[in-house]
Design a protein around this nucleic acid. Structure first.
Lengths: 357, 357
DNA sequence: GGCACCGATGTTTACGTAAACATTTCCGGT
DNA sequence: ACCGGAAATGTTTACGTAAACATCGGTGCC
């Protein structure tokens, strides 16, 4: 670390002067030991809850601890144990419901296991930044890493990953080389499309997410697959960037298609935009056209009309991420392969049989 | 008690766990030094970028580092430096836009300053859990703490806070005793209510957040204040829990009030519910009734109709949190007082003059 | 040519903790 | 009274890093 110390700022660095702002050394076990009149090892035993300390002594030590406000030094412990009890989470954005919900679940389950989460944000998804994050990661006090990111960016950065840090990846097809946990995108998309076909729609249109998203690709692929299997025509694909605005624009286009009676939108935000476009164009949902979303965000039930959508179990994704990460940490092994978390179709009021023609 | 325990089942705290797998020791500076044929101190100098290493030697060391895959041990550094370059963030939920956006901003600005974020989730806001989080916090390797939480819960837990950890709090009235950064709730609410009055509405109804939220209270207080100042009647308050469903229920009630021509809703999610309730009851927004939200979530512009709302600058809140936290860390001081981040009213299509009567 | 000095590198030490090993204390059994 | 032995407590050491201090070789100056 480049200690850029301006030489002329004051009369010497603040920590040398005896009168300087009390950069007071933290209370250590030695201090407690001195006050309690025991050895620091005994303090350690009390601190870690080891047996073999007579109650009277223990009480003495605890009193001294309280009196001095002692708390163990995490860094020293980590150094001693050789592990940090910390999981790093690399992510690109928290703006999407999925990411923040997954993160929350990860943090919660990690906490249950006595681990904490260190956040490593990658603000702009340029290769540089990603590489930078992973380089920094190398120096970070982290036992395992969970990556929540479109994996395409990750690919070239992967090589930089320190070999002794265990990795779990969300939203990725890197199952060959890494441990991947993800929602079963394909199954969810199939549920959505089948639902619409079952209602009697001749075919289903699709508003997909951006091509660099693995999830978007999987959903689009499954959509196309179901239509092909069923021998239905495959309408041209619209793409958006997950935002409601993008959905709105796609919706305006779809509203012009007289054949379009059913739309599967790759996420709920874009579905919101589609609903607004249809509303504005006087295409009544679900009477004239049915819409299915993906994610089941908290607001989906309050859209106009309440949105039928594919529910993602973000909590479960988070749980399995932590599970896989800790398993690897404990065994010291590196797992590969993909774990898929099932989805569930939530029926609300945005789908109905097609209008009589 | 301990007499009956066989020594090999010794169950200390979970993190004392068995060091079962042959945890291969990480490459240390000594290893690099040996390979490069220099002293470990020279490796240290190269690693930290200190001057005074001749290029040839430096290259030799770098080669050895690469060859062995060396990366510095964060714990050892932290122990040496006496600081962790880490900020802990305590929060209750990431489900609200505000919290996750603030967190993202905090993480980003912290990263810019060379700090990382450690997440400390408090899943259920019981006093127990909060206390627990703060106790754990004490042992955590953290230089400062940012708390994103309704402060009422915090209050009694505060005493537990280690005195040498610096604190910044969001969404709180603890400015007397702590450093608080928050959106200027009152100003935002005033903007919203004034906007509606300026449009010609006789008065403004309010759907508030839960009473345990400080933000909710501030917004409600400001709403009432503006009406009082303007000499307008103060309609009865509705309360919700921030969710769209709660907004929907409140909206159904408001739709029955013939006098209600303008509603200020304490957040956008509830506003979404209110819009749906009005839609369902045939009260056209904004022709029959105007609605203003709070937050300006990404989807607000895609509501039906697009929502006029108070924009919160979460990024700025996050930035100032980090700033305040790091300032305290650097100076070793404890700041108190409140910093307010201004809001901005975003005009969209959900407000209009009241209907002619 | 000798000496003071500086730059490059090596050696020692401390950070706080806890395992491993060492010592003391105290007990019951003979 | 003595001894074996275990429980209670103390001492040493290592974890990986980097500041502080020590050393060594060369360079410039008189």
């Amino acid at each position: 670390m480049s200690t850029t110390r301006p030489p002329e700022t004051s009369s010497g660095p603040p920590w040398t002067g005896p009168l300087s702002p009390p950069r007071r050394r933290r209370v250590s076990m030695a201090d407690v030991a001195r006050l309690a009149g025991v050895s620091s090892q005994t303090v350690s035993r009390v601190s870690t809850g080891h047996p073999g300390v007579v109650p009277a002594t223990r009480e003495q030590v605890l009193t001294a601890m309280r009196q001095l406000g002692y708390r163990p030094n995490g860094a020293a412990r980590a150094l001693k144990y050789g592990e940090f009890r910390t999981i790093g989470v690399v992510l690109f954005t928290l703006a999407t419901t999925g990411n923040s919900r997954t993160l929350e679940a990860i943090a919660t389950y990690a906490a249950d296991a006595g681990y904490v989460i260190t956040l490593i944000p990658v603000t702009t998804p340029t290769q540089d930044r990603v590489d930078g994050a992973f380089t920094r990661l190398g120096e970070l006090a982290v036992d395992a890493v969970i990556v929540i990111m479109e994996v395409h960016l990750l690919d070239t950065a992967t090589v930089v990953l320190p070999p002794d840090v265990h990795v779990v990846i969300v939203d990725s097809d890197a199952g060959e080389r890494h441990c991947v946990v993800d929602t079963d995108q394909a199954h969810g998309a199939r549920q959505a499309v089948h639902h619409l076909l079952d209602l009697g729609h001749r075919t289903v249109w699709h508003v997909a997410g951006p091509p660099e998203s693995f999830a978007a690709e999987r959903r689009a692929l499954a959509w196309r697959g179901v239509l092909r299997e069923a021998g239905r025509p495959v309408p041209p694909l619209r793409r958006g960037d997950w935002s409601a605005d993008a959905g709105y624009r796609a919706g305006l286009e779809l509203a012009e298609e007289p054949d379009c009676t059913a739309v599967f939108v790759a996420n709920d935000q874009m579905a919101l935009g589609v609903l607004r476009a249809f509303y504005q164009r006087g295409r009544v949902v679900p009477r004239d056209v049915s819409v299915v979303g993906f994610d089941d965000i908290a607001e989906a039930g309050s859209f106009i009309p309440p949105l039928t959508t594919v529910h993602q179990d973000f909590a479960e994704v988070g749980r399995r991420c932590v599970e896989a990460a800790l398993r690897q940490v404990r065994t010291g092994s590196t797992e590969t392969g993909t774990t898929l978390v099932p989805t569930r179709l939530v029926l609300r009021d945005s789908t109905a049989p097609p209008p009589r023609r």
